[in-house]
């Protein structure tokens, strides 16, 4: 930054008093400089917004207070995995590692439902941050005045949030995997045993992140008020269950079970069982819905919520 060039339109020139043996001095031009470097366009803008959204979801770059809720919730999501790994360590010391591993209370397929409440809380807490602040403080005008389409903005933010959820869903699974594999007497064998689970785990994590993330962001997109968005998200994830449960309680098992397709968490339970090949718990699912119903519901939820959000931002006034 100390190059004494005189490019551009800035005012002060360079003056150097040079003598063959005497003292010298220079004045450097620190006026306004034009930017001649590369301009990376839409792709770069979208990428930057994506990473910014991902970081913001965890409260990174926004001060200490913003990190409290995410840290607590992420910690809670990891807790079962940590506990299992800790128990495995103990069990391995007593030589009953593999027996414990095979009968562990929480496994890959059951992990998702065990932390689903925590993930829902995370969505309710953090999704409003991403869309709410920009709307509340009028920052949208500054984004839209840039080389970024409105749809790009919505999609980048959604993608960042979904990626964050993906991390939350996957991190404990990875921990579990590492714990089981590394603490096992026969590492390669353990890897071979657990490898088939990797596919389903990834698929379910992606589905879960996309569905829960997409729906949460759709709710958050429509209100700048934090409290309303949080309440709306929680309502979206709990009320359908209650409604379905009521209908079931009234005796209509067919309608009641079909109604469960309106509940994102139940839909994810369905896809979980499809992917891992485990039977559904009998508390709610009184009849067997065709597999395709769960998958269709999940995809509809993802696509629909994203479409609604993109449309919202295409029309919002700045």
């Amino acid at each position: 930054m100390t190059d004494a060039t005189t490019a551009g339109v800035a005012s002060s020139g360079v003056s150097t008093t040079a003598g063959p043996t005497g003292p010298t001095g220079s004045i450097y031009d620190i006026g306004y400089r034009r930017y001649e470097g590369p301009r990376l366009g839409r792709a770069h803008a979208i990428r930057s917004l994506f990473f910014h959204s991902l970081r913001s979801t965890f409260g990174i770059g926004r001060g200490g207070r913003a990190k409290i809720a995410p840290i607590i919730l992420v910690g809670l999501a990891l807790l079962p995995a940590i506990a299992i790994v800790g128990a495995l360590t103990m069990a391995a010391q007593f030589g009953v590692g593999s027996r414990f591993a095979n009968n562990a209370p929480i496994r890959y397929d059951t992990y998702f439902s065990s932390i689903s409440t925590i993930v829902v809380l995370f969505c309710a807490a953090q999704a409003p941050e991403l869309f709410g602040r920009d709307q509340r403080y009028g920052v949208l005008a500054l984004y839209f005045a840039r080389a970024l389409r409105r749809s790009d903005y919505a999609l980048a933010r959604i993608a960042g949030f979904v990626a964050a959820l993906l991390l939350i869903e996957l991190a404990p699974q990875v921990l579990l995997f590492l714990g089981r594999v590394l603490l096992s007497p026969d590492i390669l064998g353990a890897v071979g045993d657990d490898l088939p689970s990797v596919g389903p785990v990834l698929a379910q994590a992606i589905l879960s992140a996309a569905l829960l993330g997409g729906l949460s962001m759709a709710v958050a997109a429509f209100t700048p008020r934090r409290a309303y968005a949080t309440a709306g998200i929680i309502a979206l994830f709990t009320i359908p269950n209650i409604v379905a449960g009521t209908v079931l309680g009234l005796g209509s098992s067919v309608i009641g079970t079909w109604l469960l397709l309106l509940s994102p968490t139940s839909v994810l339970d369905g896809t979980n069982s499809i992917l891992f090949g485990t039977p559904l718990g009998s508390d709610f699912f009184f009849i067997d819905l065709p597999n395709v119903a769960y998958v269709a519901a999940a995809l509809a939820g993802v696509v629909g919520s994203i479409a609604i959000t993109v449309r919202r931002f295409s029309r919002i006034a700045t």
Binding site: R39, G61, A66, R133, G138, A141, A145, R146, A147
Partner: peptide, 27 residues
């Protein structure tokens, strides 16, 4: 430069301006 308020209160000037610079396509 819009007429209305458009700055998030919990970010610093450096944060928001450099973020928006990235969105404008600067490396």
């Amino acid at each position: 430069m819009p007429e209305h308020d458009c700055l998030p209160p919990d970010a610093s000037a450096t944060d928001i301006v450099s973020h928006l610079a990235l969105i404008s396509g600067l490396p």
